[in-house]
Simulated assay, not measured.
Amino acid sequence: MTNPHLETLSVNGIRMRIAMQGAGPLVLLCHGFPELWYSWRHQIEALSSAGFRVVAPDMRGYGGTDAPLQVEAYTRLHLIGDMVDLVRVLGERQAVIAGHDWGAIVAWGAALTRPDLFHAVIGMSVPFAPPDPTDILKALEDRGIHDHYLQYFQAPGVAEAELEQDTEAAIRRLLHCGSGDWHGVPAFGRLPGQGFLDHMEVPRRLPTWLTEDDISHYTGEFRRTGFRGGLNWYRTMRLSAELMAPWRGCIIRQPSLFMAGTRDSVLGFPVIPQLIAAFPKTLPGLRGCHLLNGAGHWVQQERPEEVSALMLDFLRAL
């Protein structure tokens, strides 16, 4: 695998590190929690080799990108604004935007709010949800759930202390237990113990899709930055639901693609099955909904060739 060019740019008032490779139509790749541009390493290679200009940023709060101190600086509109301005800084007028996990929420939001700029969208793991006053935290509370990891992440400093106590062990646990290789209690959902990691195990040996070099890359970055930036995305969920009010009930008409692993525990969240079932209405431009059998949450890392092939089929047909 060739190494992409790393560069730091001034984007939307912050310094943003990007990984860039290739020439051609622009494709932006937005990572989720707790990841980095590096989670797209396989797709950067595959898409750039196929004639696309691929740019994967460290998102706001992560890696080599600035992490503002104020929690309020991580709303969905800030994150969408980062991608809008990144297109401008790159000297482009349009892009296809793709995202995984929290990055999918950003990608869907970017396509929803700026269809002039983002002419197609790919989401992974987290399906499109038209803006609604009932955010996921309210949905959990309405079901009498008070021990979900999304709720645990709300108090500043609590999850940081747990994850940063042993950063390498946290990374090993998360990547292993969030994958399709794990058959224990779902990694993402309700917490059977006192903390986020209590029910997760450090693997005796890494799954085949993950290497020690991968672990070292993630560990080195999160040891340096901590997890505060990424966790702050969760702490603006209610505020973001309010800010997205102008787009309530709106749908995405551009060409779209969704994929997830069948063993991704996020698919078991309240309302997620209903969101996927509503795609014919909310994503009238949908060109594929692919559930990859046996894959877990880290779908583009667990099934790189399959994900890249599906992305390229979609991109070439645009």
Rank of each mutant, 00 (worst) to 15 (best):
T2M: 11
T2R: 15
N3S: 14
H5S: 07
E7I: 09
S10Q: 15
G13A: 03
I14G: 00
I14S: 11
I14P: 05
R15F: 08
R17V: 10
A19E: 01
L26W: 03
L29P: 09
E35W: 01
S39F: 07
R41P: 01
S49R: 12
A50R: 12
A50G: 06
G51V: 03
V54D: 00
A56G: 10
P57C: 09
M59R: 12
G61A: 13
G63V: 06
T65G: 08
D66T: 00
P68L: 02
A73G: 03
A73K: 14
T75C: 06
L77D: 10
G81S: 03
D82A: 08
R88L: 00
R88V: 12
R88T: 15
L90C: 07
L90P: 05
R93C: 09
R93M: 06
A95V: 02
A95F: 01
V96I: 12
A98Q: 00
A104D: 06
G109D: 04
L112G: 03
L117A: 00
F118E: 08
F118S: 01
F118A: 02
H119V: 14
H119Y: 14
V121I: 03
S125P: 07
S125A: 15
P130Y: 08
P130T: 12
P131K: 04
D132Q: 11
I136P: 06
A139C: 12
E141D: 15
R143Q: 15
G144P: 05
Y149H: 12
Q151F: 04
Q151N: 08
Y152A: 14
A155S: 14
A155E: 15
P156M: 04
G157A: 05
V158I: 13
E160A: 12
E162Q: 11
E162A: 06
E164K: 02
E164Y: 06
D166E: 11
T167G: 09
E168I: 07
A170M: 03
A170N: 11
R172M: 04
R173S: 01
C177M: 09
C177Q: 11
D181R: 11
H183F: 10
G184R: 09
L191W: 12
G193A: 07
G195F: 01
G195E: 14
G195S: 12
L197Q: 08
D198C: 05
M200P: 04
P203V: 04
W209Y: 14
L210Q: 07
D213R: 13
I215F: 04
S216L: 14
H217Y: 14
H217N: 07
T219W: 09
E221G: 03
E221S: 12
F222I: 03
R224S: 11
T225I: 02
G226V: 00
L231A: 02
L231N: 10
W233A: 12
W233E: 05
Y234I: 10
L239W: 08
M244L: 15
A245N: 05
A245T: 07
P246Y: 02
W247H: 13
R248N: 05
R248P: 08
I251E: 13
R253Q: 15
R253T: 14
L257Q: 06
F258R: 07
M259V: 06
A260N: 09
T262R: 08
R263Q: 11
R263S: 11
V266D: 02
L267T: 04
G268Y: 01
P270A: 05
A278P: 02
A278K: 00
K281S: 12
P284N: 05
H290S: 01
L292R: 11
A295M: 14
Q301M: 15
E305W: 09
E306Y: 07
V307F: 02
L310T: 07
D313P: 07
